[in-house]
Design a protein around this nucleic acid. Structure first.
Lengths: 340, 340
DNA sequence: TTTTACTGCTAAAACGATTTAGCCATTTTC
DNA sequence: GAAAATGGCTAAATCGTTTTAGCAGTAAAA
C-alpha cells in the first residue's frame, strides 16, 4: 500500500505546470496583488481542492517567523479558576487564528522557568503568564529578549510589563464592608500566597475597611497560609480564628474556600448564624453548599479577552497603547445566604 | 539598538570554523556515533552555552516530521472533569517531551471537525479525542489518513480504534445496587447525551440492577436530557420524578449533579431522607453540599496515562499491542451521606 | 521608432534544522 | 608495501513554505 503522501504546494504546481510561487500567491489570496490571471487562479484553487491540499504550518511558520501559537502558563489547569480562564483565552485567541499550548507551573518557580524555556524553543509567538512568586528574573529576561508576554492576575515589583488584574484592594474592601454591615465585628481573613502583591492588596482592603469603620484589627484573625491545598493547615487556622471569636470570614481564593467550608462543616459551625462568609472567586460549588456562599466574582471573560487583545497587539504591532498596558478591572459581587 | 538575533547552529559553526553538521551531531548527542573528537565536542557545547543557543523546533520538526506536540480535543476545558483529565494528560505527555495543544468542541460536531482540521494542518503528531455524538465519519477519515489518535471516555459504533473507557455498565449497575441496598425501590436516573454508547451502558447497568433485584423499571423515572447545562430542563425532570415518587436518584454526569442538587434544594427535598443520591464523577463540590454526595470515581489519572501511552506507541511504533488497544477501566466508589 | 508601463509569470534564496554520502589523512592488516 | 579500516570532519540535499527580484511579451506613450 503506497502511503499516499500529503500534497504540497509543489504538487499543485506540477499538476498545472506552473511555479510554486504562483500557487503560493493564489493560496494566500494575493492573486490580485501579484497579478495572477483570474483563470489561472481559479485552476489553482480547483486543483488544491481536488488534491485536498493542506498547508504545512511548520514550514509556513519557519519561513514567516510566526507560529500562530501562544503559550499559557498557569498554576494548574485542574483548578476551575484557571480552567475557566483557559477556556476564555482559547475562545479569544481563536478569533486571531491562534492556538494555545498550556503548561502548569504548580506555583513552582523551577517548573515555571523550565516550561518557559521549552516553550521559547517551540517558537510560540507570545505568552500569557500567571507566574509564581519570585519570577521577577524570568520576566526581566523575557523583556530583554523582546518576547511578547502579558502577566495576568498578578503584578511583580520592578517589572514594568503589560498586566491584567482586578482591583484587589477594592474587592477586599467591599467584601469586608459587607460583612461589617452584617453586624460582624470579629472578621477574619484566610489568605494564601501572601508574597504576591495582589494578595497583599486583598488583605489591605480588608484592613482598611475595618479601620475606617473604627474596628480594631486583630492579628490572630489574619491567617496567611503557605498552600491552599492542605486541609490540615486550613483546619488549624479555622480553629484558631473560631477560638478568637470570629463571626465573619473572608476567603481570598476559591480553593481555600472549598476546603474551608468543609472544615467549618466538620466543626459543626453554622453559616451564617455562627459565622458570615464571603469568598473570592465564584465556584459552582457555592450554589449547592448547605448555605450558599457569597462571592467576589472576577470578570474572567473580560480579563482573558483583554489579555489576549494586549498580547496580539504586542505580537502584531510590537507595542500596546499606554492606556491598555496595565488594566485593572472591577469585580462583581454575588451575595448569597452566607452573609445576610 | 541592533535587535540581537537568536543564535543558530550556523552561528556556532562559524564561531568555531567547523561545519554545521558537526554542531548538529554534537548537540544531538551523536558525538560518539559520528566520531567527533572529544575536544571538539566540548568546544561546541561550550560555545552553544555561551551563545545561549536554543534549537528552533519549527525547523527541527519540519525536517524530522515530528512536532512533539499532541492535540487534545475535549468538550470544554472549563468542565472540571475534562480539566482534570487535561492536567493528567499534560503530566504524562511531558514525560515523552511532548506538549499539548487543547481545543474545545462544546459537544458540537461542526466545531469538532473544524478543530480537527486546523490541528492537522499544524502537524500535531497525534490526537486525544473526546468526540461529540456523530463523529464516526471524522474518525474514519483520521484512520484512512493514518493519523495516530486515541478516543477517550467514548466508543463509536463501527469504528475500531484505540479507546480508553471505564466500565460504564458496571458502574451504573453497582451504584444502583447500592441504592437498592439502601431500601430504595423507586430509583430514578438522570442522563444526558444518550446517543453515546457509554451513556447507554450506564443506563443499562441501572436497568439490569433493578431487574435482577426484581424491581420493575418505570419509564417515568428514566430521564434523558438534551443538555447538561440547562437548569430548566433539569428542574422539569426532577419535578416529574419526584411526583412519580422517586426515592433514589442516579446522576450520570457531574455537571448534571451540581444543577440537580441545586434544584432539589430549591424544592426543599432532603437528601437522603426524601431521596438517596449517587453521582457519576467526583466533584470537589460534593464534599461541601448540605449532604455530602456519594460518587462513582472515574480513574482519571489512569485513563489519561493509558491514553497517552497508547498514543505514544502509535506515534513511535506505529502500532499498539492488542491487549492495550481497547482499555476498559474499573471505577471506584466513594460513599458519603447522600446514600445511607 | 523608441521608451515606458503593464501583465503574467518564474527562479532562487531563505527560514534553521537533520542526515546522507563521502573526502582526506592516518593507522592497521596481511 | 599495498589494501583496508578507522578517525574526524564537510558538502549538499532536504523538509514545505514565502518572498524578492526579475524576465518576457504586449500595449500605451513619446
Amino acid at each position: 500500500m503506497p502511503k499516499k503522501k500529503k500534497s504540497t504546494i509543489q504538487d499543485i504546481a506540477d499538476q498545472l505546470g506552473v511555479s510554486k510561487s504562483l500557487v503560493s500567491f493564489v493560496l494566500n489570496g494575493k492573486s490580485k496583488e501579484k497579478r495572477i490571471s483570474d483563470s489561472m487562479a481559479k485552476k489553482v484553487l480547483e486543483v488544491a481542492k481536488r488534491m485536498n491540499y493542506r498547508p504545512n504550518y511548520l514550514a509556513k511558520s519557519l519561513r514567516t517567523g510566526r507560529s500562530q501559537t501562544i503559550a499559557l502558563i498557569i498554576a494548574d489547569i485542574s483548578n476551575p479558576f484557571f480552567a475557566k480562564m483557559a477556556r476564555f483565552m482559547e475562545i479569544e485567541a481563536s478569533k486571531y487564528e491562534y492556538k494555545v499550548i498550556f503548561a502548569n507551573s504548580d506555583e513552582d518557580k523551577e517548573k515555571f522557568t523550565a516550561e518557559l524555556s521549552v516553550l521559547k524553543n517551540r517558537q510560540v509567538d507570545g505568552f500569557i503568564l500567571i507566574p509564581p512568586i519570585g519570577s521577577e528574573k524570568e520576566l526581566a529576561a523575557l523583556q530583554k529578549q523582546k518576547l511578547p508576554f502579558v502577566v495576568v492576575d498578578r503584578v511583580f515589583k520592578n517589572i514594568d510589563c503589560p498586566t491584567v488584574i482586578i482591583n484587589n484592594y477594592q474587592a477586599g474592601y467591599q467584601a469586608t464592608q459587607r460583612l461589617i454591615e452584617n453586624d460582624r465585628r470579629n472578621i477574619a481573613i484566610l489568605n494564601v500566597n501572601n508574597k504576591l502583591y495582589t494578595m497583599q492588596q486583598r488583605v489591605k482592603g480588608y484592613h482598611d475597611a475595618l479601620m475606617e469603620n473604627g474596628i480594631a484589627t486583630s492579628p490572630v484573625l489574619v491567617k496567611h497560609l503557605k498552600f491552599s491545598h492542605d486541609k490540615k493547615l486550613i483546619m488549624k487556622a479555622i480553629k484558631e480564628i473560631i477560638s478568637a471569636g470570629a463571626d465573619g470570614l473572608l476567603f481570598t481564593t476559591g480553593k481555600l474556600t472549598i476546603l474551608g467550608i468543609e472544615c467549618l462543616m466538620e466543626l459543626g459551625i453554622s453559616i451564617p448564624e455562627d459565622i458570615s462568609v464571603i469568598s473570592f472567586d465564584d465556584m459552582d460549588a457555592y450554589r449547592v453548599t448547605r448555605t450558599p456562599i457569597s462571592a467576589i466574582v472576577q470578570p474572567l471573560e473580560q480579563m482573558s479577552k483583554e489579555a489576549i487583545t494586549i498580547l496580539m497587539s504586542l505580537i502584531e504591532e510590537n507595542t500596546v497603547a499606554v492606556e491598555n498596558k496595565n488594566r485593572v478591572l472591577d469585580v462583581d459581587f454575588v451575595y448569597r445566604a452566607s452573609c445576610v
